[in-house]
């Protein structure tokens, strides 16, 4: 059977010669390929350009932009919400689509925060993260994550405590209904949509140590398996 298509949600970036681009980070591409998926980049359907250090304020998606984005999403059997600096309304739109159609979703770092934010806050797009103040270093380090007993991740990895890399300064708000893994200082590290087969956000970067870390491989393998399941059993019968 054909491999599942995984849509990587592209992130706006500013290259050093002041040219604005959207991009996918290599680890995401490589990990999806290695686990048996086909990655494509979902390019924004609305104008987002940099003029300076931070991105221009991006307006709401209009109806044409939403239709265009939805058509792009229909090509995919799974979505990967990458790390980055900021998330936009299109991230919330993609999460909403995934929830509605039960498409497998993996959020990484910022992607996890966007997912946690979506599930917890009334305003699905507003950035409700806050700066970490803790003895544990979350920026360019490694630390322990303790998973809850009812988490999908615990079932997958067969361990309550795992060691993860960490590259963030901000954290999501806690919400016991959806946060399924914590650092030992209480920082949310795993978000899972309750009742869904695989709609998960991780505050760390499994794609960075795919080759050396069993857990990272298991996560991506499961993600791709779920995309295959979606393609075979859910997508075609709509």
């Amino acid at each position: 059977m054909q491999r599942p298509i995984i849509g990587i949600v592209e992130r706006p970036e500013l290259q050093t010669d002041s040219v604005s681009v959207t991009c996918s980070y290599d680890g995401n591409r490589a990990s999806i390929l290695k686990s048996g998926g086909i990655p494509i980049g979902i390019l924004p359907t609305q104008p987002i350009s940099y003029f300076g250090k931070s991105p221009v304020k991006v307006g709401e998606l209009n109806i044409f932009e939403k239709e265009a984005l939805e058509t792009q999403l229909q090509l995919c059997d799974g979505f990967l919400l990458q790390g980055g600096n900021t998330w936009y309304e299109y991230d919330a739109f993609i999460i909403e689509y995934a929830l509605k159609h039960q498409v497998p979703l993996l959020g990484i770092c910022l992607g996890m925060q966007a997912l946690a934010n979506y599930l917890t806050n009334e305003n699905k797009v507003l950035d409700k993260t806050y700066k970490i103040e803790s003895d544990i270093n979350h920026n360019n380090s490694e630390h322990i994550v303790r998973l809850t007993r009812d988490s999908i991740l615990y079932g997958l990895l067969m361990q309550r405590e795992i060691k993860v890399n960490s590259y963030h300064n901000y954290r999501a708000h806690d919400n016991e209904a959806v946060i399924k893994g914590y650092a030992l200082d209480g920082t949310p590290e795993v978000v899972e949509v309750p009742g869904e087969r695989f709609m998960i956000g991780l505050q760390w970067h499994p794609e960075k140590d795919y080759d050396t870390n069993d857990d990272s491989r298991k996560i991506f393998n499961r993600f791709i398996d779920e995309a295959v399941y979606y393609k075979r059993f859910i997508k075609e019968y709509k």
Partner: peptide, 26 residues
């Protein structure tokens, strides 16, 4: 120092402007 696969916004914008739906091929 992260390797990335990118598309210049200008291509993206042009495709959308003339009625296409752009996806990035890596």
């Amino acid at each position: 120092d992260l390797t990335q696969f990118y598309v210049f916004n200008d291509y993206n914008t042009a495709v959308l402007k003339f009625g296409g739906l752009p996806i990035a091929i890596m």
